[in-house]
Nucleic acid binder design. Structure first.
Length: 1061
RNA sequence: GGGCCCGUAGCUCAGCCUGGUGGAGCGCCCGGCUGAUAACCGGGAGGUCGGGGGUUCGAAUCCCCCCGGGCCCA
């Protein structure tokens, strides 16, 4: 078999990347290529467990960043499959949670939570959520497939399934068994309109809001006239005040203002007095924060607030460095453990009561006395400030505008509020979490730093939400005796007297009651659902069916690789680790790669509201899939990606060059009937040219570099190396170099060697590139390589990843070629400077090497240099050679010379002209030139002169770092004639193309006009015939019947005619 | 306010870990090629390497401070 039969496909094909990709898509579907790839991988001995971070199925169209994310995953999976791993590639979808509930509420026009019960019913509501998510998943899967992601789409894991829910229950039970599951108060953001807690991640929207900014005086107990000064922007929390915090290390002052004494932080004194407009005050004492500890005070509103009655004993100063700052406030912080996170933690630590006076709807509730029924930010604030003022407890009041969290769906300002929630006390596992996190391999390394820092601030995990669309909390409480039981599985549910509902979601699960093992009473489920972060956190085992089946998880764990955006360091990476440690006391994953964000061209987030959002549909219709893939994978993975149509366009252009490279190969291999199975690299080893050995070395170096980069998860390094190899090394250098060998008509060994080399290099590259540009590589493989080999696998994706053949790597040769390329550049520049067209051969190029390494390299590669710069010979000389030819000009800088040498100036100017060479050499080498002029010692320095270098007219020279390269521009009559012959050849070729002749077509040529040119062609007739595939040249006016054209070659006119024979 | 990241040519980005004369692509100007060709190649102009300080013989690179942007928290 040969590649002959496919030539036409590639060369005649009008290249269209979109058509290429559609063809491949069809090919994959028709031949079930994913199944084949999967089947091959499943036979491999080494496991590679990839765990997909499930995208949130809340929309139909994926974000550019989501596409990037999946492409990274796909590249890694494809790489490991080709490298001989049994790859686990199940994708997943995250499907529960409030954001989805809200979308459904919006689509149904529901206003408040109550509407769900009253207007639609929970049962219907859940069905809507499910249907919505299913539609989204279907659309998203289609898009992931569209960009070529080879994952097990038919077996995707979905978090809303009964199996998944049951797996989630298992972990809650685990936490319970370990004594980590608790119920208690937690301070969380609460939306008073939606009447629900909001998860941390839901507190994402802030508004600039105006709030009171008040300084309140809390009387020091037993010291009339002395007050603790406290600052707050939330007067509504004052009725719930329990204690005041101070920083042990700060300096505090006692300040006399009028006839009162105020205590506050020294660092804040000036600012506060300025703000309050108090001109005269006197510091009468200074003390450390720690000296304030235990100081008791009275609450200024004690008699108005019922709840305050029982708090007298707790009203004192508590040392709490974490709650006090020096840049704002007074250094004394009013603490309401029912309304502040730090306040709460300290309150609990001290065993102080937790007072929360705001109810579900945001109004002051039981215990708030005079303020009962007042809405927290409105009436309550107003009334409290008035009361304080009336009582003389207000030092100063104004307002501030600051960022305040609002509910992201109804924009209502949120309240921090202690509510009863279920949580897992992961803080007890802190050391274990840190130990396990430390074992994980992070890319890049700073992700680890970030993760570790976060673990230092670990807080307990509040898992309960008062919502519907989520994993129901598997906790049942006895109506009679209050006994609580955690259910770990459906089986346990049945054993406890319950039953298996068809769907484990609310509301069906709510109807399942159990029999209390303590008193035999009826147990009902706690109505909460789980935080949606819990869902994805258990994916590492839940997606494998654990614990209902154990074998799969046990054989695969831990996950070998996960990758997500850097926002997931605190998100999924953390929730996974948390779940892993709770469930199995170890990290569920061993390697993490972090990727950046897809931003717009200005570096802003892409949002529909900003108008800079790129729809997937638009992306995929404007940009071929592989172009997108190559572009995103070239971006440094962990850095943000700035989306740019222009950048994609440029990447697209590279594909043309890649394509042309393969077309070049297939065209000539096809013409000559090259058979890669007969003419192997081994069989032509003795005939390899130096450029062949070079490119073979380069491709093996590439394989090495590529494998190292991929193994280290530096995908962008791999992608960039691939790109620059095919574009710079192969297309722009090697192909240019071998064209002449390939154009030979005869079947030479040199040509065979070139083909064998090219075939080997391109096929190797194709294998390496397959994970990154799976469509293009498949097309080229199917059309060029597969038909040429008898036992070639069905698809390029079934090939084995090449490993570097170190024996073919010749580092010295690669280094030498680098030198040669630099010399070539210099020579081309020298030619350009002399206005010599590349088509015109030059007699010789002289390379004056700056060191022996350059000298050796140029000697070794002189043929390559000669070919590339179209020189008959390349002479290598030492630096001294050109030095002899050099002519220096030394121009005096009259200002400097005049100032320094006064009267001697004219003589010195003359000297510079006469001894230019000597002076120039001396100044350039030693830095000065000394001479006796009219009996005086004269010292010329660089500032006195402008030194110029000139070469003889027939030499065009170029200085480079490695050498001075000079082109001998003299042309003999014969060379001039050859130049003309080439000009004619070029024009004939052009006309051949215009006449739409095939490369192999033979022609007859007519030539008339300028005598010099005719003579030149006659002289080089064999050459001209060979180049143009002309069987005959007639030196006469072309007959009217043939295709003819008049040409102007350097002002000489000729007429060329030709016809196919 | 904190942690981490980024800030290099007009634009997009390499180089920084392991200090040693600043790179690529695109754009611009000039030239070339035309048997890979709705391509391609060469040359040129263009940079206080965000700012400041320090370490060093030597800093884009290491350290500190500041400014601007991002992510995650507060």
């Amino acid at each position: 078999m040969t590649v002959l039969k496919v030539v036409d496909v590639l060369s005649k094909f009008e290249y269209n990347q979109f058509i290429v990709e559609s063809w491949v898509k069809g090919f994959w579907a028709k031949n079930r290529v994913y199944d084949l790839v999967k089947a091959k991988s499943s036979l491999q001995p080494r496991k590679f467990y990839f765990l997909d971070g499930p995208p949130y199925a809340s929309a139909k169209s994926i974000h550019v960043g989501t596409a990037w994310n999946k492409v990274i995953k796909d590249i890694v999976l494809r790489y490991y499959r080709m490298s001989g791993y049994n790859v686990w590639d199940k994708p997943g979808y995250d499907t529960h949670g409030l954001p989805i509930e809200v979308k459904i509420e919006q689509s149904l026009g529901l206003q408040v939570k109550k509407d769900i019960y009253e207007k639609v019913g929970v049962e219907n509501f859940i069905s809507y959520c499910k249907a919505f998510v299913e539609e989204n998943m279907k659309a998203m899967t289609g898009q992931f497939r569209e960009v070529g992601v080879f994952m097990d789409w038919d077996e995707a894991y979905v978090t809303y399934t009964n199996e998944y829910i049951e797996a989630g229950w298992w972990l809650i039970k685990r936490a319970h068994d370990k004594g980590l599951l608790q119920k208690g108060y937690r301070v969380l953001h609460w939306c008073p309109r939606c009447e629900t807690t909001l998860a941390d991640y839901e507190v994402s929207e802030y508004r600039e809001l105006e709030d009171p900014s008040i300084y309140v005086k809390f009387p020091v107990r037993g010291k009339p006239g002395e007050h603790l000064l406290v600052w707050t922007t939330t007067p509504w929390t004052l009725p719930a005040n329990v204690f005041i915090m101070a920083h042990p290390d700060f300096d505090y002052v006692r300040v006399k203002v009028g006839d009162e004494v105020l205590i506050m932080a020294k660092a804040r004194l000036k600012a506060i007095m300025e703000e309050a407009g108090v001109g005269s005050y006197e510091v009468i004492g200074e003390l450390k924060g720690r000296d304030l500890e235990g100081l008791e005070y009275d609450h200024p509103l004690e008699d108005l607030v019922d709840a305050q009655k029982g708090l007298r004993d707790y009203h004192k100063i508590v040392l709490a460095p974490e709650g006090v700052v020096e840049y704002e406030g007074t250094g004394l912080v009013h603490s309401a453990p029912g309304h502040g996170t730090i306040d709460y933690d300290i309150g609990v630590r001290l065993g102080f009561p937790i007072v929360s006076l705001v109810d579900d709807s945001g109004r002051m509730g039981e215990g708030s006395g005079a303020y009962k029924g007042f809405y927290f930010r409105a009436e309550a604030n107003k009334a409290i400030i008035e009361d304080l003022e009336r009582r003389g407890a207000l030092f100063y009041k104004s307002t501030v505008v600051h960022r305040y969290p609002v509910c992201w769906r109804c924009k209502t300002p949120l309240a921090l509020r202690a509510t009863n929630q279920w949580f897992i006390t992961v803080t007890k596992l802190k050391e274990e979490l840190i130990r396990e996190a430390d074992r994980i391999e992070w890319r890049p390394e700073w992700a680890k730093t970030r993760f570790m820092n976060m673990l230092q601030e670990l807080r307990d995990w509040v898992i309960s939400r008062q919502r519907f669309w989520g994993i129901p909390l598997p906790i049942w409480t006895c109506r009679a005796c209050g006994y609580t039981h955690v259910v770990g599985s459906v089986k346990e549910l049945e054993e406890m007297g319950g039953y298996r509902p068809e769907d484990l979601h609310r509301p069906w699960i709510d109807k399942v009651t159990l029999k209390c093992p303590k008193c035999g009473g009826v147990m009902e489920r706690v109505p909460d659902v789980l935080d949606v972060w819990f869902d994805s956190g258990v994916s590492f085992y839940a997606s494998l069916g654990y614990p209902m089946r154990r074998d799969l998880y046990e054989s695969l764990e831990p996950a070998d690789f996960i990758v997500e955006g850097h926002d997931q360091i605190r998100g999924w990476f953390f929730s996974l680790l948390r779940s892993g440690v709770i469930g199995f006391s170890k990290t569920p994953y061993r390697r993490v790669l972090v990727h950046g964000f897809a931003l717009d061209e200005q570096g802003r987030e892409m949002h529909k509201s900003l108008g800079n959002y790129v729809e997937f549909e638009e992306l995929i219709s404007r940009v071929p899939r592989d172009v997108f893939r190559l572009w995103v994978s070239s971006n440094t993975t962990w850095e943000d990606l700035r989306f740019s149509w222009k950048a994609l366009d440029y990447t697209f252009r590279d594909f043309t060059v890649i394509w042309n490279t393969f077309v070049f190969a297939s065209t000539y291999m096809g013409l000559d009937g090259f058979d890669p199975e007969a003419v192997t690299l081994d069989s032509v080893r003795g005939y390899l040219g130096v450029e062949d050995r070079w490119v073979i070395s380069r491709v093996n170096s590439l394989v090495k570099k590529y494998n190292e980069a991929m193994g280290d998860l530096r995908i962008h390094d791999a992608a960039r190396a691939l790109r620059s190899f095919i574009l710079d090394d192969v297309s722009r250098f090697y192909v240019r170099l071998v064209r002449r060998r390939v154009w030979e008509e005869a079947d030479t060994l040199s040509k065979r060697a070139a083909y064998a080399t090219l075939y080997y290099v391109l096929k190797t590259w194709l294998s390496l590139a397959a994970p990154i540009i799976p469509f293009t590589t498949e097309y080229l493989y199917q059309h060029l390589f597969k038909p040429a080999e008898k036992n070639a696998p069905e698809s390029v994706h079934l090939l084995d990843m090449p490993s570097a053949n170190e024996s073919l790597i010749d580092e010295e040769l690669e280094r030498d070629m680098d030198i040669a390329r630099s010399i070539i550049d210099a020579a081309l520049a020298a030619r350009a400077a002399a206005g010599l067209k590349l088509r015109r051969p030059v007699r010789r190029v002289i390379v004056a090497a700056k060191d022996s390494r350059v000298l050796e390299a140029v000697s070794r590669l002189s043929d390559v240099i000669g070919e590339m710069v179209n020189a008959k010979s390349v002479e290598v000389k030492g630096l001294e050679f050109l030095e002899e030819l050099r002519v220096y000009t030394v121009k005096p800088r009259m200002g400097e010379v005049g100032r320094d040498f006064k009267k001697l100036t004219p003589v010195i100017v003359e000297l510079m002209r006469d001894k230019a060479g000597e002076i120039a050499r001396s100044i350039t080498s030693k830095g000065y030139y000394e001479a006796q002029v009219e009996g005086e010692n004269v010292r010329l320095e660089p500032r006195h002169v402008d030194i110029g270098v000139e070469y003889p007219e027939w030499l065009s020279a170029r200085e480079s770092e490695l050498a001075t390269v000079a082109v001998d521009t003299r042309i003999s009559p014969e060379e001039e004639a050859e130049g003309y012959a080439k000009e004619v050849v070029r024009r004939v070729q052009h006309m051949r193309k215009e006449a739409k002749l095939m490369i192999e077509d033979k022609i007859e040529v007519w030539l008339s006009g300028d005598e010099g040119i005719i003579k030149a062609v006659e002289f080089f007739e064999e050459y001209v015939k060979g180049e143009t595939r002309a069987v005959k040249i007639n030196y006469e006016e072309p007959p009217g019947t043939v295709y003819s054209k008049e040409w102007d070659i350097e002002d000489k006119v000729i007429t060329i005619g030709l016809r196919k024979v």
